[in-house]
Computed example of a mutant assay.
Amino acid sequence: MILCPCKKCGNIYWHFPEVVYEHLIVDGFIRGYKKWIFHGECTSNGTSSTINPTYPDTDYHQHVRQDDMEDMLRDAFNMHSHGEQSFLPDFIISEDCNIGENVFCETGTSAPNEEPNEEAANFYNLLNEMNEELYEGSKYSKLFFCIRLFHLKCLGGWTGNSFTMLLEFLREMFPFAKIPQSCQDMKRLIKDLGFGYDKIHSCLNDCMLYWGDQKNQQSCHVCGKSRWMNSNTEDVNTDEGGAQLRKKPVKVLRYFPLKPRLQRLFMSSKTAESMRWHNDKRTDDGLLRHPADSLAWKSFDSKFPSFASDPRNVRLELAADGFNPFKIMSTSYSTWPVVLVPYNLPPWICMKQSSSILSMIIPGEKGPGNDIDIYLQPLI
């Protein structure tokens, strides 16, 4: 959908192109909209965020930033506009707003009281962060700053402590900016985007996971080893000075839930169409260009015709290998990431790093070997 530049909508309401065409025929263009900055046309300075001085709605333009956080949030939570108003700072979500129906309330108004679900609450929390400027007059939001900086942390392999020191330095140099105080604060801010993971304790000898019905067990029912690094089975220990010390498990599996990640592939307007490529746009001439051309794929389709009948069903490749996370070859330590590759995508996309889905990280210090099936239980 696009913003409608007709006289009634005024580049505020979103509609499908067919509806916009009808509005323009009936009502005509809004006066003063000569530079199509809301529809991809750049101004003389090369940006699309500076509005024509004759444009009447200057208050609206003040809130148009150069980041694309709004589109990202809409794709991430599948909350696309259907004629409702775009995200403006003048329109906030009141405490008694009916979030379940995706209603935007003007400041000071009320709506029927309804408890929002967790996903909707996360969406509107991030929406508030998106509408919060990094500093007064900034063209970027606080959310955009946090996501970009955290992305650099991941690419550069910065430790949590070094990242916190960087944030402290930035806050000291720019006290007027709304910069998180620590790495943990930034993680809490962007956690609602779905970047979190589940921690699942495992046996020292890879016998079992403390998961599901066995979540509360204190020792392995196979080898008898304790779940914790010490023999005490209390949740919290007390040292000689009387201070409480939280216990540490001997092994922790990091599991990234698969279902929401697959849902994101179809929520995003940029990837939903590509997830049907193997059925809709693949050239079927007998040549092997894609896994869908292989005999194994066709054999699977013949055995499970109900699954193959819907091209939106996801085909995944599972890959796992060990590596030394400490970059010291003299140290014997092996951590095993488990990566999934969606084969629904075109071949020039599915093998890119951005298309790989990190599903879990199996802890070391030794490889799981034949016991890897124990760790794959949450995924399978």
Rank of each mutant, 00 (worst) to 15 (best):
T238L: 02
F174C: 12
M186H: 06
H201V: 01
C350D: 05
G242T: 10
F169P: 01
E317R: 06
F256L: 08
S110D: 10
H61G: 11
E70N: 08
P311I: 06
L73E: 09
H151M: 01
N313A: 05
M72T: 15
D280F: 03
S330I: 03
P291T: 05
G100A: 11
L24A: 06
H290W: 07
G286P: 10
N98L: 09
L265Q: 07
S274P: 01
S182W: 09
M79C: 10
L167T: 07
Y140W: 03
L345D: 02
A76M: 06
P311L: 04
P368R: 05
Q218T: 15
N324I: 03
L253D: 02
D192C: 05
S355W: 01
S219N: 09
P311N: 11
P56Y: 12
T164G: 10
G10M: 11
S354D: 14
V103G: 03
K35V: 15
T50Y: 05
D285F: 05
M1H: 14
S294T: 15
E115R: 12
L358V: 10
S94T: 14
D192I: 00
R188N: 15
S48D: 13
F87M: 12
I349S: 05
A320C: 11
Y333Q: 14
P368S: 07
R289C: 02
A177G: 02
D373R: 06
R74C: 07
F29D: 07
V339M: 10
L376T: 04
K327N: 15
G364F: 04
S309I: 02
L149E: 11
A177W: 14
M79V: 13
N102P: 01
I37R: 15
L189A: 08
P363E: 08
Y140I: 15
S48W: 13
I147A: 08
N11P: 04
I361Y: 07
G28A: 01
F323K: 10
M275V: 06
F256G: 02
C183I: 00
G83N: 10
K366D: 13
T109V: 05
E136K: 14
I349F: 06
G100E: 14
G83Y: 10
A121H: 10
G241K: 13
G194N: 09
C223I: 12
K35G: 02
G242M: 05
P291M: 06
A76D: 04
D27P: 00
D235N: 14
K251M: 06
A121F: 03
D71A: 11
L149D: 11
Y197G: 00
L376I: 06
N161T: 09
L258A: 00
P17V: 04
G367L: 01
G242P: 07
D198M: 08
I37G: 03
E101S: 13
M229I: 07
N161S: 05
E84L: 01
M360D: 02
K327Y: 07
L126T: 08
S334A: 12
